[in-house]
Computed example of a mutant assay.
Amino acid sequence: MANSITVRAAVYRGDGDRLAVEELRLDAPAHGEVRIAVRAAGVCGSDRHVIDGEWNVPMPAVMGHEAAGVVEAVGAGVRELAVGDHVVVAWHQACQRCGECAGGKPWACMRVKSNESRLPDGTTRWQSLDGAEAWPYLAVGAMSEHIVVPDFAAIKIDERVPFDVASLIGCSVGTGYGAVVNNAEVLAGESAVVVGAGGVGLSIISALRLAGATPIIAVDVSEEKLAEAKRLGATHGLIGGPELPAEVAALTAGGADVAFEAIGRIPTMEQLPTLLRPGGRAVFVGLPPEGHPLTLDALLLAYEGKTIIGSNYGGLVPARDFPRVAAAYLAGELPLDELISARIALDEVNEAFDAMRRGERTRSVIVFAPESPASGAES
Rank of each mutant, 00 (worst) to 15 (best):
E116D: 15
G241N: 04
C98N: 12
A355T: 08
E185H: 15
H92L: 08
I309F: 05
G84C: 08
V70K: 10
P106N: 15
Y303E: 01
N56Q: 08
A154L: 02
D337N: 14
L19G: 10
R361N: 14
D15W: 01
D121L: 13
P318V: 14
I205W: 04
R343Y: 02
L138V: 04
R320S: 07
W126D: 00
R39M: 05
V200R: 09
V50A: 05
T307R: 14
P323D: 01
V200P: 06
I217C: 08
L210R: 13
N56M: 09
G176M: 10
L272Y: 12
G174V: 08
N56L: 05
V71C: 06
A262G: 13
W135N: 11
A30S: 11
G254P: 09
V200Q: 09
R35D: 00
A2S: 13
R39Y: 01
D354E: 14
A250W: 05
I169K: 01
S222C: 11
F260K: 04
A262H: 15
H236G: 07
A213P: 08
V140L: 03
G286P: 07
M269I: 13
G196C: 13
K306M: 13
G241Q: 06
M110G: 15
I216E: 01
D151Q: 15
R160P: 00
V11M: 08
A369G: 14
L272H: 14
A345N: 14
A229I: 00
S114Q: 13
A211F: 07
A166Q: 07
D297I: 01
N56G: 10
G201Y: 13
V78S: 07
A218V: 05
C44P: 03
A166M: 08
S379K: 12
T123V: 03
L339R: 12
H31I: 00
L238I: 03
R357A: 11
K105V: 08
P278R: 15
M110E: 15
P370Q: 07
D17W: 03
T268I: 07
V74C: 12
H31P: 01
M1E: 12
L202W: 01
E304T: 15
V38R: 10
A82M: 02
G359Q: 13
V34G: 04
S341R: 13
L138R: 04
A73S: 13
H92A: 07
A134G: 12
D257I: 04
G122A: 04
I51Y: 01
I155M: 02
Q127C: 10
R320E: 03
D297K: 02
K113E: 09
P242C: 03
R357E: 02
G241P: 04
Q96F: 05
P245D: 05
E371M: 05
A28Q: 09
C109N: 12
S206R: 00
